[in-house]
Design a protein around this nucleic acid. Structure first.
Length: 480
RNA sequence: GCGGGAGUAACUCAGUGGUAGAGUGCCACCUUGCCAAGGUGGACGUCGCGGGUUCAAAUCCCGUCUCCCGCUCCA
């Protein structure tokens, strides 16, 4: 219970800092906000872009077997029929007026229409016994009451119309996941890039779901951003690729965390698997409210390519000239590749990183203020370096501005700051997660050195001004 | 969608029918030679929104929106 309260307090602090420091604002706030929608402010957009850039670098730039894709958010409506989203995302839901349970009508216990059934008021043990006639052919699965709300269709996909004229046949959907485009473009990508199985397609982008419930700030929202890979493999090799990808992805998260053990892998039970999957693992993070999913890594067999082949009438398969067909033994094997899908939430990663990075240090001196610091990995931090004149005189601001420009030119995101005292500037950048602060002082003019201050240790050392860009770059791990 | 809690300054919060407050932050100038603690001055609130009761509403009533916590689903 104390943990739960501590978790809620932590979240409140993170949310507050996000707004105070320009990471994340409620959407449309001056109009009262919009449910579940958030805007990434000047610091938040940098953090999110850095996360996605690091992911792209790891899965596209640093390996030869994956290429990228950026598909349109709106796709042919039949894509979603093939994928099962039109059917699967559209369930008739009913609320029980008696015990307040919400359930799927098609999965509720059957009962004969017109008969009278007995149930307990409120669904509670001590409740009064009530009797009522069954109006529909089922009752509440929890309390057995036939006192039910109307069936309501919950379509989890956002609908809109293509073309300015609203008509039934112009209905299209905003994608509920980025994955399908990679299946639909499988052949184009494979052929144009001469990709040989095993190979993958990577894509990042926004997806949309009319979630029944949204919660935990940006954790579950109707508009969210994904980082997905569809990795196509030879049938029969999916288990070893699951092994590869689970290790790869867990390792990726842990590289950026102060507390790597807050990320774990959870293998789904057999009865938890979707009907098309033969294995699935979740990468989970220990959020302030408990373990929750960051990424799902699913072994989806050949389900998706097969479905799209059926619905489109196109042959979605791969021909391996160097392998004999296992059925006939003749050279050349045409098969529908199996898919391993590491599907990550970019916005969830952002929240994870903020939670992991948030830290409070007690005041070092009596009467001092505690220090709030975001210990973001330097490569993810919005600003890599802040440059200050120690005082606002003696030509120090001019000198500092010259230094900032060196970082601009080097492509390193830097910030000039001369407001308030030097101590306040350090603290302000601690909250922004800026890993390094350079301070220009009187000595700079004499011997061309500046101090570089480390966010985490608050230690300073003097380095030569001319080496500043190089030193920062080395610390960012961009130069050895 | 249902149940519970909450919305007052940029942030954290006080204010239970009678002139909207505090701390932090923010702005300007001075000061300041290294970790939010100096001085002087200053700006900022449709009290979430709409309606009602009242001589008078941040405060009471109704509706609505948003957020948080539970029930459900997923990245």
């Amino acid at each position: 219970m104390a943990d739960k309260q501590a978790g809620e307090e932590k979240m409140a602090k993170v949310v507050s800092l996000c707004k105070r420091r320009g990471f994340i604002f409620p959407s449309s706030e001056i109009y009262g906000g919009l449910k579940s929608c958030y805007d990434y402010g000047p610091l938040g957009v940098e953090l999110k872009r850095n996360v996605m850039a690091e992911w792209w670098r790891a899965v596209v730039y640093e390996r030869e077997d994956i290429v990228g894709l950026d598909a349109s958010i709106m796709m042919h409506p039949r894509v979603w029929e093939a994928s099962g989203h039109v059917a699967g995302f559209q369930d008739p839901l009913v609320d029980c007026r008696n015990c307040k349970e919400r359930f799927r009508a098609d999965k509720a216990p059957r009962a004969e229409q017109g008969t009278e059934v007995e149930y307990l008021e409120g669904g509670k043990k001590g409740g009064k016994k009530l009797r009522r006639v069954v109006e529909r052919s089922y009752v509440c699965p929890v309390c057995g009451s036939p006192d039910l709300s109307e069936e309501r269709m919950f379509n989890l996909m956002f609908r809109t119309n293509l073309g300015p004229v609203q008509a039934e046949d112009s209905t299209i959907y905003l994608r509920p996941e980025t994955a399908q485009a990679m299946f639909v473009q499988f052949e184009n990508v494979q052929a144009t890039m001469s990709m040989k199985v095993p190979f993958g397609i990577a894509q990042t982008g926004k997806s949309f779901r009319n979630e029944v419930t949204v919660e935990h700030f940006i954790f579950r929202s109707v508009e969210f951003e994904q980082m997905e890979i569809e990795f196509f493999v030879e049938p029969g090799t999916q288990a070893e690729w699951m092994d590869h990808w689970t290790k790869e992805r867990v390792g990726w998260y842990r590289r950026y965390l102060n507390k790597p053990d807050d990320v774990r892998l959870r293998r789904h039970e057999k009865d938890e698997l979707a009907h098309y999957a033969d294995d699935c693992c979740d990468v989970e993070y220990f959020f302030p409210w408990g373990w929750d999913e960051l990424e799902g890594i699913a072994s989806r067999t050949d389900y998706d390519l097969r479905k799209h082949a059926e619905h489109s009438g196109k042959k979605l398969s791969y021909f391996d000239q160097n392998k004999p067909d296992p059925a006939t033994g003749k050279p050349g094997w045409r098969y529908v590749p199996y898919v391993v899908e590491p599907s990550a939430g970019a916005t969830r990663s952002v929240l994870m990183l903020l939670c992991d990075a948030y830290d409070e240090e007690p005041a070092t001196e009596p009467g001092g203020e505690p220090r709030v610091v975001l210990r973001l990995h330097p490569r993810l931090a919005p600003y890599k370096v802040a440059v200050f004149p120690l005082v606002k005189k003696d030509g120090l601001p001019e000198l500092a501005r010259d230094v900032v420009k060196r970082f601009y030119k080097a492509g390193i995101h830097a910030r000039y700051d001369e407001q308030h005292s030097i101590g306040k500037r350090y603290r302000r950048h601690d909250e922004a997660g800026t890993p390094y602060c350079l301070t220009i002082d009187g000595q700079t003019k004499e011997d061309g050195t500046v101090t570089i201050r480390d966010r985490d240790t608050m230690k300073q050392e003097r380095i030569s001004l001319d080496a500043a860009v190089r030193v920062v770059r080395r610390r960012l791990g961009e130069e050895s």
